[in-house]
Nucleic acid binder design. Structure first.
Length: 308
RNA sequence: CGCGGGGUAGAGCAGUUGGUAGCUCGUCGGGCUCAUAACCCGGAGGUCGGGGGUUCAAGUCCCCCCCCCGCAA
């Protein structure tokens, strides 16, 4: 089948790979190369690299809904369109091109967590279950009728990065099922329940700022929800310290909020939160690499110091 | 050539105006103790990222290169 695949980051890779393995006649539509890294070298999106390896034609547009994009899409004349973490809003004109319509793979259980960063927000909000959804794409933001859904539990220590990888693979499998069902004519699109819908915003750098006045669980959820990007951080004596991994504890020491109530290489690093003591197990000082807290404490005395 | 912080013992760090390279942990040996991840004593372990230069003398000052990290994108 002729399929136009619209996707950009790593999340889209397993789905794209699946379509390649199934032998479809593909074209990739993705974002332009972006400056990346410390020296701002132009870097192609992950999906583009995969496409190039397989000799799949690549079309890059800042906005595919503009006339250029529309005509390129029309020229490819796909029977079906698939989007996965595309990062662009499609116009009705785009959507009308493929006769079989457009399927989107989304990293949440719609209608919850519509929007750009559903995986991170599910963890930050302390959800215990999430999943992937396939849907018929509409012009709105993740509002189209639901095709198939698959749930998965979130481990209490799982990071966004780990969940990302799992959901990307689940998404690919669900997409495979969805396309098979579409061709078999057994799909029954279900309109989303608007009353249950929630939207999530994009993750910004600032989202990673830790607020120790919150309960230990909320801090823990934030730390793993923004790991590995953009990473959680707090200030200590004017320096930005990144917090990479935390662990909830039953400890009962009391101290000022943000204080390192226990901080030695033997026991580890324990910080007073608004509710409970949180252990920080992995962190990173300016100029340094991320390291185990117990190692960091050998050269960075922190007993009694304050995070803010 | 976007801005900045770093590379010193196995690990994490300190090293002031150039003048015998230190600290904590680990490691090895010994001691103390009912006992210990606790405590005491002692030992091993470093071409101070690499190269060149200045100097009687360079971890430290100057130039070049490599690698790591944060910010900004």
């Amino acid at each position: 089948m002729r399929i136009a695949f619209l996707g950009t980051p790593d999340f889209a890779i397993p789905s794209f790979q699946m379509l390649i393995d199934e032998g479809h006649e593909l074209a990739l539509f993705t974002n332009p190369d972006r400056p990346k890294g410390r020296h701002g070298a132009l870097t192609p999106p992950p999906t583009k690299e995969l496409a190039c390896k397989h000799g799949i034609p690549v079309f890059q547009f800042e906005k595919i809904r503009l006339p250029e994009g529309v005509s390129a899409l029309r020229a490819f004349a796909p029977e079906l369109m698939v989007t996965a973490a595309f990062g662009q809003i499609l116009s009705q004109e785009n959507l009308d091109i493929p006769p079989l319509g457009c399927i989107n793979v989304h990293g949440s259980l719609l209608p919850k967590y519509r929007g750009a960063a559903p995986i991170q927000w599910a963890i930050i909000n302390g959800e215990q279950v999430t999943g992937v959804t396939t849907m018929l794409t509409e012009a709105g933001l993740d509002t189209g009728p639901i095709l198939l859904k698959r749930e998965t539990p979130i481990d209490e220590n799982e990071t966004a990065g780990a969940l990302f990888d799992r959901l990307a693979i689940m998404g690919a499998a669900l997409l495979q099922e969805t396309i098979a069902a579409l061709l078999a004519g057994t799909l029954k699109p279900q309109p989303q329940n608007e009353n249950a819908a929630t939207k999530c915003t994009m993750i910004k750098k600032e989202t990673g700022r830790v607020d120790f006045t919150k309960p230990a669980k909320r801090v823990h959820d934030l730390v793993r929800g923004v790991s590995p990007w953009p990473g959680a951080y707090a200030e200590m004596e004017g320096e930005t310290v990144k917090l990479w991994q935390t662990r909830r504890t039953e400890r009962t020491e009391r101290g000022e909020i943000g204080a390192c109530v226990i901080a030695n290489p033997r026991e580890g690093l324990f910080v007073q939160t608004g509710e409970g003591i949180l252990e920080i197990t992995e962190l990173q000082f300016p100029g340094g690499k991320r390291m185990a807290a117990k190692a960091a404490l050998l050269g960075h005395p922190m007993q009694g110091k304050l995070f803010s």
